[in-house]
Simulated assay, not measured.
Amino acid sequence: MASAQSLSQEKVTFIEAAIENGVLLFGEFTLKSGRKSPYFFNAGLLYTGSLLSSTSKAYAKILNSSRIPEFDVLFGPAYKGIALAAITAVDLSRQGREVGFAYNRKEKKDHGEGGALVGAPLKGRIVIIDDVLTSGKAIREAIDIIKTQPEAKLVGVVQLVDRQEKGQNTIKSTVQEVEEEFGIPIEALLNLKDIIAYLETKGGYEKELAAVKEYRKNYGIDI
């Protein structure tokens, strides 16, 4: 289990801001997988300048210091991934690292410039930026889009939260399944162990901590 010492001040600040702004919620939530979860991370509520700034900095830091190799384009799947990829491209540019940004439309446009893709051409090395991989359906749809582009190569995925729980039909997590299936690294700003470590350290969240630990006992993976 993660200890208090393993949490950087950046992670603590991010978790506290997420809780304060209702982005990280505790209660009972039905996931895409059908499971009842005692916590939920709603990236749709990352809508203030300060939250977006801290999020983009966290994404940029991972892209500069993780297993993700060199890349040319950030791809943000519609809808939540669009803003996340855009703000990350801006933050990287401020650091002197210029990369492209692209996203897909849910429905293909048949007028104007047309097409289902917007932004930089999907060429070269692509990194997907998204929020949470739950069932894996959405990330596979994004990967399928990249596969349709003959000059594009997917080299990694960065997500907001790794729930570190089993997939539907395996003892492996959705993240592990996707990593093995497509041969790419997947990184996250936070994972479930980080959230548990924060709750243990902060205090005052005994009920929430117990519920999260019970959920992890039933659905978690050993990492």
Score class of each variant (00 low, 15 high):
88 T>K: 01
72 D>P: 04
65 S>F: 06
59 Y>N: 04
92 L>H: 06
76 G>N: 09
68 I>W: 02
95 Q>K: 15
104 N>F: 10
85 A>R: 01
66 S>H: 10
101 F>L: 13
78 A>W: 03
59 Y>T: 08
68 I>L: 03
100 G>I: 09
62 I>M: 09
102 A>E: 10
93 S>L: 15
102 A>P: 03
85 A>S: 07
61 K>F: 12
82 I>P: 09
73 V>H: 00
62 I>E: 03
73 V>M: 01
76 G>L: 02
91 D>N: 12
64 N>L: 13
81 G>H: 09
83 A>I: 15
64 N>C: 12
75 F>W: 07
85 A>P: 06
82 I>D: 01
63 L>P: 00
64 N>K: 14
74 L>F: 04
104 N>W: 03
66 S>A: 05
58 A>Q: 06
79 Y>M: 03
84 L>F: 00
98 E>H: 15
63 L>D: 00
66 S>L: 08
84 L>K: 00
105 R>E: 14
98 E>G: 14
71 F>S: 02
86 A>Q: 03
71 F>Q: 08
71 F>V: 00
69 P>M: 06
79 Y>W: 06
81 G>S: 03
83 A>F: 13
89 A>F: 10
62 I>K: 06
102 A>V: 07
80 K>M: 09
67 R>K: 11
102 A>L: 02
80 K>N: 06
74 L>Q: 07
81 G>A: 04
87 I>M: 10
89 A>H: 01
86 A>K: 09
59 Y>H: 05
58 A>S: 09
65 S>I: 09
83 A>Q: 10
68 I>E: 01
62 I>Q: 08
75 F>Y: 10
88 T>Q: 07
81 G>W: 00
98 E>T: 15
87 I>Q: 01
90 V>N: 14
69 P>R: 02
76 G>R: 04
67 R>W: 13
95 Q>E: 15
66 S>I: 05
63 L>C: 08
62 I>F: 01
97 R>W: 11
81 G>M: 07
61 K>Q: 11
59 Y>C: 05
81 G>T: 07
98 E>N: 14
68 I>R: 02
72 D>L: 08
69 P>W: 04
90 V>E: 12
82 I>K: 01
87 I>A: 09
79 Y>I: 05
78 A>M: 05
70 E>R: 05
81 G>Q: 01
85 A>C: 07
71 F>E: 09
104 N>V: 14
96 G>Y: 11
70 E>K: 04
105 R>N: 14
93 S>T: 14
88 T>I: 07
97 R>T: 13
63 L>N: 08
71 F>K: 00
93 S>Y: 11
93 S>D: 14
84 L>R: 00
104 N>S: 12
96 G>Q: 10
90 V>I: 14
104 N>E: 12
103 Y>S: 11
74 L>D: 09
103 Y>Q: 07
74 L>S: 05
94 R>G: 15
105 R>T: 13
98 E>V: 15
94 R>C: 13
97 R>Q: 13
95 Q>G: 15
73 V>I: 07
69 P>F: 08
60 A>M: 04
80 K>W: 03
65 S>N: 13
69 P>Q: 01
101 F>W: 12
104 N>I: 11
99 V>L: 11
92 L>Q: 04
82 I>R: 05
97 R>M: 12
78 A>V: 09
85 A>F: 02
83 A>G: 12
